[in-house]
Amino acid sequence: MKTWHFIGILLPLLGCSHGSPAENEAQTQRTNNEPIIMNESPEQFQEMAVPNSNQKQEQHQQRKSEALLNVPLIKQNPELKYGCEVTSLAMMLKYAGADTDKMKLFKEIKKDNDPLKRSANGDILSWGNPVEGFVGDMTGKRAGYAVFDKPMIDLINRYLPGRAVNLTGKDFDAVLDHVSAGYPAVVWTTGDYRLPNRWESWTHGNEVIKTPLDLHAVVLVGFNETTVYLNDPLSGRKQVPVNKTRFIETWKAMQSRAVSYR
């Protein structure tokens, strides 16, 4: 039985290179109680084991009700049309004090170089697998796609040895706990932070990869009761406010992918 991977696609005119946040979202106002500003990340964060519901509840009770991290903003354009993942990673690593930038990460991230093959009418027949490495051309000179959490974790450990944390597949509360402790996270969403509604599929070896058309990666830098705050490398906006409930729904639809460090 073949395994289906539900992932987001970056076609030549879509994904990280297109579909910036909706204009009405830009007008969203923060609550009257401004989030706590954290200018420096903590030196240490101990992840808590959560073998039962009582311990999980205790952990979440320790989370701040609101937080906002002063993560530096880096724009992916014009150099990296499809480079939302490595640009978001550059923001996070800069905040952690690592000596790197988006172009270094662009060169260092693992690539899946399987070529793009199309049918006569332009449909994608086969391409690479973003689980294994970045698919396509990140610069936009040719079609570009995406990369997922495992190659990103490898890069985090290169700059912060032994400190990478893969939050993929966990509950969003675990991601909020991490940000509350002072650690931003790279999260996968869509270009307008809404549920994906257009899909593409192709083969990769013996697998069939089914993908929504609008994949994007941003840095989760803060939250409060109703809102999450994002550094968006495509729109070039810092601490973008987005409805928390809506964002979580989209994040789950994109297979709950997130990476960070401790």
Rank of each mutant, 00 (worst) to 15 (best):
E66K: 14
L125E: 11
N206K: 10
W127Y: 02
G136D: 01
D149G: 12
V86H: 09
P161K: 07
L167P: 00
E132G: 02
Q76H: 07
S88E: 07
V179I: 15
G83S: 09
G162M: 10
D173H: 12
Y82V: 02
A143Y: 04
I209C: 00
K141F: 14
M103E: 05
D149Y: 15
D123I: 02
Y82Q: 08
E108M: 15
L80W: 10
G97S: 06
K150G: 04
D173E: 14
G191S: 06
D101Q: 04
D101Y: 04
D154T: 15
K117Y: 04
G136H: 04
T100K: 01
K150H: 12
D171R: 10
G162T: 11
V186I: 13
V187H: 00
A96R: 08
F148T: 06
L73E: 03
G128N: 01
L68F: 15
N77Y: 11
P78K: 09
L167H: 05
K107A: 13
V187Q: 01
K64N: 12
H178F: 08
G83A: 08
G140I: 09
G191W: 00
D173R: 13
T190I: 01
R118D: 04
T190Q: 00
A181G: 12
Y159C: 01
F172R: 06
N206I: 07
W199V: 11
T189I: 10
D154Y: 11
G144N: 05
R198S: 12
K141R: 15
Y193I: 10
L80F: 13
G97F: 02
M103K: 09
D123G: 07
D114C: 05
N129Y: 12
K111S: 12
N206A: 07
D101L: 05
K150Q: 12
E200V: 15
T139G: 11
